[in-house]
Design a protein around this nucleic acid. Structure first.
Length: 193
DNA sequence: AAATTGATTCAT
DNA sequence: TGAATCAATTTT
């Protein structure tokens, strides 16, 4: 189990792919982390999704082939990374919300000067992009191609289990338990304030 | 509780 | 052309 997933792995509903992404490894250059928290975002039927009002230049990648990276700029200062799911033409992506740092941790510290403890490095969607060096120029890259600057692979150990909750930081469709995380992992971002 | 920060989108 | 929104983080 250290291979890259088949594209068909992502060619499924976002709510099916999301829990399966816990334990996978997201890598950028020499830096990598194990996914411990994700959220699913759909298409026209999901009012919290960037794609719910149709295709635009920003969300274009969400409608494209699965297994690609959708990176968007948030709150005027942060980058967030999503894995595109669903068949080509359908809108959907899984937001990566937190990682357990695995490799390149010294480089992560350099790009996360505010972090005090190791669990501060990647415990949030914008923290982990800063820690890994993911930004807008990575939008649309193929995560399955191991030669891509950003790639996704299966982890060495399967997580013991997972828990769900409502998604964080949204105001619509808050009744959907579309957030999945590894219980007890110190790198999971904090619950809503 | 509030500042920070700017692209995106929808409404005039 | 303008205003509201925003899958957030940090400090007060």
């Amino acid at each position: 189990m250290s291979d890259h997933p088949e594209r068909s792995f992502f060619e499924r509903p976002v709510t099916a792919v999301a829990p399966d992404m816990l334990g996978m490894v997201l890598a950028c250059g020499d830096r990598a982390g194990r996914i411990v928290e994700v959220e699913a975002y759909g298409g026209a039927d999901d009012p919290a999704s960037h794609g719910h009002r149709g295709r635009t230049p920003r969300n274009e990648v969400m409608f494209g082939p699965p297994g690609h990276l959708y990176v968007y700029f948030s709150y005027g200062m942060h980058w967030c990374a999503n894995v595109v799911c669903e068949p080509d033409g359908r809108c959907g992506a899984v937001l990566v919300r937190a990682l357990a740092p695995l490799q390149g941790i010294e480089d992560m510290w350099a790009d996360r000067p505010k972090a005090r403890r190791q669990r501060d490095l990647c415990s949030g969607p914008a923290k982990l992009t800063a820690a890994l060096g993911i930004a807008g120029d990575h939008n649309g890259v193929d995560l399955i191609d191991p030669t891509s600057p950003v790639s996704l692979r299966q982890g060495d150990v399967a997580p013991a289990g997972h828990a769900t909750s409502a998604r964080i930081g949204i105001s619509a469709a808050t009744d959907r338990p579309w957030r999945w995380y590894t219980p007890g992992d110190p790198n999971v971002s904090r619950p809503p304030r």
